[in-house]
Design a binder for these strands. Structure first.
Lengths: 190, 190
DNA sequence: TAAAAAAATGAATCCAGTTTAAGAAATTAA
DNA sequence: TTAATTTCTTAAACTGGATTCATTTTTTTA
């Protein structure tokens, strides 16, 4: 039913057709128009979202009342406010579709049921979190070793297709500076 | 054999005495004097370390040739350069004992063997990574919403015992500023 | 008890990034 | 197609949080 998801899972563990059917049953497909909110501050994150199609951003509003993006999600990524989800506490974030999106929602209950039925999914999710930890470790390294201009250049080098995909002001927000500054960096000769 | 570790694991999953014996067999106890290196740049991280006693820091040397601490590890934490460990690539970090330490080393091979024998350990490790992801998400939030002084004050509020435990210059390095600046913050009245 | 390491303090300085503002360009809606 | 909205660019003035350098005091270690 969701070949993109199954292909992704099978890169890590094996699945039978029966497994796939079971997984399909436990997931909820959501199609969202651009700018739709998936989560808002005060609400508890409903589950873990697998992105079949589209782009999602996670952000909060800081003291200066500007949006501060902390994370983007793209195709084949799982995304959630895990602090809210696993500790069942109100989120402080917005999750919002940046493009029209197709998401699969997996609630904690369904996740537990799935893992009981298909134990190797525990390995799959462990691998997902492992990758997230590595990504976070790298991000901390970048942040603490580069200035804002270097951050932008490194980010463009690593994800050239991505910077075409989101508005520049979102990129600036994610990287932690103003859109004007980003515009100036781009105007500069390298 | 390692009650502190077993207690920790049992907060997440159950273990039989036989399980505990098996785990004991797969771990290597290392006692380290303060300032001893556990990992150095260019080397591949040997495994995942559980800290029974002491404090460890992870750092790299930046362009200005100053030490930049990215992480501390304390009792009952697992610590490793996961990028190096799981992708088997040379590390860019130092891992060093800040105090005299007792660590348990779990190599990837032994980890695989243990998880085959005791499947619920997969759940345990999944939970550990989950917690790491949440911690990283929070850290990104702090970094992107506070200035250096606020970061320090929040950090002291959250971990008052910890700031007593490490030299100030290490704390400054972890928080991303100079020891002089930290000294100035402390001298200030709140 | 000497030596080394860590912390405090003062003063001068700085520049990476913000702010403000206004116009151009691109996208979206209707 | 046009109007409305959103996004991007550019430029000039500015700023203040944080660094640097240099010296003294305190604490830790051998």
């Amino acid at each position: 039913m969701y070949p993109k998801l199954f292909t992704h899972i099978k890169k890590h563990v094996s699945l039978t057709d029966a497994d796939e059917a079971l997984i399909t049953n436990k997931l909820t497909l959501t199609k969202l128009r651009k700018k739709t909110f998936i989560l808002q501050p005060g609400k508890i994150c409903q589950g873990n979202y697998f992105i079949l199609k589209g782009c999602v951003r996670m952000y909060f509003v800081n003291k200066k009342l500007t949006e501060q993006i902390t994370q983007f999600g793209l195709e084949n990524w799982w995304l959630a406010d895990y602090d809210s989800l696993y500790n069942q506490k109100p989120s402080t974030y917005y999750l919002q579709a940046v493009e029209d999106c197709e998401l699969l929602l997996l609630t904690p209950q369904h996740e537990t049921e799935l893992i009981s039925a298909i134990p190797q999914l525990q390995t799959y999710f462990r691998n997902m979190f492992e990758k997230s930890v590595i990504a976070a470790q790298r991000r901390i390294h970048y942040i603490s070793s580069m200035n804002d201009e270097e951050l932008y250049r490194e980010f463009s080098r690593l994800f050239p297709e991505f910077i075409q995909r989101v508005p520049q002001y979102m990129l600036a927000s994610y990287l932690g500076f103003t859109p004007q500054f980003l515009s100036r960096i781009r105007a500069k000769k390298v």
